[in-house]
Amino acid sequence: MEKEVLRGLRQLVGWTKGDGIFCPGGSASNMNAMNVARYHHFPEVKSQGLRGLPQLVIFTSSESHYSVKKGAAFLGFGTDNVILVEVDDRGRMIPEDLDEKIVLAKSQGAVPFLVNCTSGTTVQGAFDPLDRIADVCERHKLWMHVDAAFGGSVLFSKKHRHLMNGVDRANSVTWNPHKMLLAGQQCSVLLLQDNTNLLKRCHCANATYLFQQDKFYDVDLDVGDKSIQCGRKVDCLKLWLMWKAVGSSGLEDRVDKAFIHARYLGKQMKKREGFNLLHEPEFVNVCFWFIPPSMRGTEGDATYQDKLAKVAPVVKKRMIEQGTMMMGYQPLGNNVNFFRMVVMSPAFSQKDMDFVLDEIERLGKDL
């Protein structure tokens, strides 16, 4: 079952061959990719450890997932060796800055080995330009990993898979069906284009009491030695059952509906006084400010930004206390606290989107 599910996902990425493993969450998938990439470049690390390695550096966007730095700490790279690449105003990695930082790192004696791209950043829902990044990775011979934990499911959609153009040129991909496809928690996968058993060579311990080679069935079905775990849940079953139940067209419909509702929400905000979009949604993240009536027309005041930063926390507190909604908020760069509405559930309707706006207006009109 797992082999068939992995094959189906790899085909959506655009690979006719490869490997993969289900992992306990996107963070673990990303960390596995980092470990495999290091082993690919320096296989001696498995037996000799870190002492014989040069200073290895990783590149990722300034808006990438925190698991990259957490993985760097856990795997012994050190967080100082995670180099943050600049992003544009939509949160997408700038390939030219990536190239410059790789050249600079080399000139300083470091050894670049991995670029972590993001398809669907946590806050803005940005998709890094994978084709252009792949050009940079090929020029410098670096492992290209795509953290598509959030956005990977657009590959099911004929309308929206263009957001991940170039993903077929990656070496590895993280994908969480428990996010946009709404598989049960947890359901995360690491996909590799490599078909030389790299995962197993990197992680295996060849425990003969578990992985005997003289079994009566195909021993390739024993995937335990590909994983850093021993006991693990059959996470692929959740995706397999859902995929069998609704089909690829049903999963495509889930993705497309999410985009439709996110676009509708953005359009309705433009029609209502007091709602300002951070930018046009690229994905299903709708980022916006609510401006209470008392603050409208005072944008030039010296205290305006300080006052605006306090609106979202108060409104969120009220919606939770009254049990009507839950919605995240955060600052980003020079932007003070704004709401981040992530539209994913296929149970959503336009009526629900209208309720979101009505409720924010009701809870924040007196601020």
Rank of each mutant, 00 (worst) to 15 (best):
Asp135Gly: 04
Phe156Leu: 08
Ser153Thr: 05
Gln124Ile: 05
Gln229Ile: 08
Asn171Leu: 07
Asp128Ser: 04
Leu114Val: 04
Ile228Asp: 11
Lys158Gln: 00
Asn197Ile: 06
Gln193Ser: 10
Asp218Gln: 10
Cys204Met: 09
Tyr209Thr: 11
Ser227Leu: 09
Val167Trp: 07
Ala205Gln: 14
Arg201Lys: 15
Gln229Phe: 14
Asp222Asn: 15
Asp131Tyr: 10
Leu210Gln: 02
Ala110Arg: 03
Lys233Cys: 03
Pro177His: 06
Leu190Tyr: 04
Ala170Lys: 10
Val167Thr: 05
Val154Gly: 01
Trp143Phe: 15
Val154Cys: 05
Asp225Asn: 13
Leu198Trp: 01
Val136Pro: 08
Lys226Val: 02
His178Cys: 12
Leu191Lys: 14
Ile133Glu: 05
Asp168Val: 07
Ala134Thr: 07
Val189Phe: 06
His140Asp: 04
Met180Phe: 06
Asn195Val: 02
Lys158Asp: 06
Ala149Leu: 09
Ser107Asp: 00
Lys141Pro: 01
Cys187His: 04
Lys215Phe: 12
Asn116Ala: 12
Asp225His: 09
Thr208Lys: 15
Leu114Trp: 04
Lys233Gly: 07
Leu198Val: 06
Glu138Ser: 04
Asn165Phe: 11
Gly166Ala: 02
Tyr209Trp: 14
Cys117Ile: 07
Arg169Cys: 04
Ala207Lys: 11
Asp135Arg: 11
Val111Leu: 00
Asn116Lys: 09
Gln213Asp: 08
Leu181Met: 12
Pro129Gly: 08
Gln213Asn: 09
Asp147Phe: 02
Leu190Gln: 01
Met144Asp: 10
Ala207Tyr: 07
Val123Phe: 15
Gly120Met: 04
Met164Lys: 01
Phe113Gln: 03
His160Gly: 01
Leu190Pro: 02
Gln186Ser: 10
Asp194Leu: 03
Leu163Ile: 10
Val123Pro: 05
Ala126Asn: 13
Gly151Glu: 12
Asn195Phe: 12
Thr121Trp: 08
Asn197Pro: 06
Phe156Ala: 00
Val154Thr: 05
Leu199Glu: 06
